[in-house]
Design a protein around this nucleic acid. Structure first.
Lengths: 255, 255
DNA sequence: CGCTCATTTGATTGTTATCAAAAGAAGTGG
DNA sequence: CCACTTCTTTTGATAACAATCAAATGAGCG
């Protein structure tokens, strides 16, 4: 299983996958010369608080980070969960928290290329905008999840979303993926208490819907999860079922 | 009291106020030649469902509309509440619902001006981007509201937000404003049942925090509301207290 | 091994939803 | 202007859901 934290992918490769899944017709080398591989900031520790990027745009290369709001009394809401290939864009009043060890790259050179108005970069600009719209849609999914879904539905939904987003950048194998977050962190995403999240997770497990252990998640019955969460895909089929190949190595991870 | 539904403001005036509150140094006539006053679509009725804009960007001139997700079993979530001066931007799976009678204008000419790369429109482009960021921040406020706030806090928060957003475009008088929505509609914004919303509203009233009647809302104790909701302003003081002038006409509305 | 952190379980409380129905407003047509 | 309908607000009673408190178990790590 390919790890979210330690995949061998370069930043440009990640972005390429992401942008291409937006139906962008990018040349093979549209991103190759970008210097987004040089990791700018290395954030370690699972709860290290890092102030917003010192300058410009940051791209998450590996690991998981959250854009977090903390209320006076300590309640936390992870407004957006950022996965490899995502742009970090916290707003005023939010902090960026590394939920796992994470590597981020400076997006300055990408931004420069986007600012270049030449025709050659037209597909790139399109893809960038499409990615932004997807980001927006995912944030709105988060609103619906928190506003009108039961704990059970929320869990089904977040698992589906995480899977799809990771699959988009090639960080999923079939219906399985690596997402090494504590239940506390996930509860701060879906707006539940840890205890209730734990119990809800058990319902999903006992229902034969998912398995989750040591940060490895498998959507055992994806179809039913989609049904439960009324899940609407945000990507044009970025993942292929590929059941046969996956079954072998997955079962040991599934626990 | 100036009405959200029937103010006499022209679209360009609304946008001007909005953009100027973004600290944009717009020339007095930066927007004047725009044809955003010609109302494109007239949506009547309080629950008329209108499919997404036929082409391009729509600007809300008067009235209130919601960008709504409807789940299979009829649960609804108003993802974003749109007030005069806002841009309508529903994503896939959402519908635009007129919550009051509303007038919308076609933003094509504004978009054309934004696309014009000449220096003259630099401040306009800046303001446009700033408005987009504010929009994003408000959406994220919505996430926190739904994810980690109690019913009481949610109500305090949404009232403060509505006030600030209306004040920004001059549709508030002091701490009072017009927002003719049914409790059902508001409950679909804050993710509560109507019944519970009604009871929570009574708590706010009895606590001497707000008055709300016939669509007229007064933040009687704004300071305390801010405290309750941990409210963070999204605008650079777009409204001035102006208590003295307001007190007269407000009290009769306050009921 | 012993420390710490994460997960799990049990018991209980508190919050919010749901159901049902009354009372109040607003609009319609006679 | 009134009877009538319909929608909204309000109230009461109850059930479902999720949070909290407390503690045990399990996993990772030096």
């Amino acid at each position: 299983m390919i790890s979210v934290v330690q995949h061998g992918l370069r930043g440009s490769e990640l972005l390429g996958r992401k942008f291409r899944s937006m139906r962008a017709r990018l040349e093979p080398d549209a991103l190759s010369a970008l210097e987004i591989d040089e990791v700018d900031v290395l954030v370690a520790g699972s709860d290290a608080f890092v102030r917003a990027p010192k300058s410009g745009v940051l791209i998450l290369v590996s690991g998981v980070v959250g854009e977090v709001r903390v209320l006076k009394d300590g309640r936390r809401q992870i407004v957006a969960l950022r996965l490899p290939g995502d742009i970090l864009a916290p707003v005023k009043g939010e902090i960026v928290v590394a939920l796992t060890r994470a590597r981020v790259a400076d997006g300055a050179s990408l931004m420069a290329r986007l600012a270049d108005a030449s025709d050659a970069y037209q597909p790139l600009r399109r893809a960038w905008l499409a990615a932004g719209r997807t980001d927006q849609a995912i944030l709105r999914d988060q609103v619906v999840r928190l506003g009108r879904m039961s704990a059970f539905e929320r869990m089904a939904h977040i698992f589906l979303e995480a899977h799809e987003r990771l699959a988009q950048v090639g960080l999923a194998v079939g219906v399985s993926f690596h997402l090494p977050l504590t239940q506390q962190m996930i509860s701060d995403v879906v707006g539940l208490s840890v205890v209730h999240l734990n119990r809800t997770l058990q319902l999903l497990r006992r229902g034969g819907l998912v398995t989750a252990r040591h940060g490895y998640v498998t959507l055992v019955d994806r179809a039913q999860l989609v049904e439960i969460a009324s899940y609407v895909s945000r990507f044009p089929v970025a993942w292929e079922p590929c059941e046969p190949a996956a079954r072998g190595p997955l079962q040991q991870l599934a626990g």
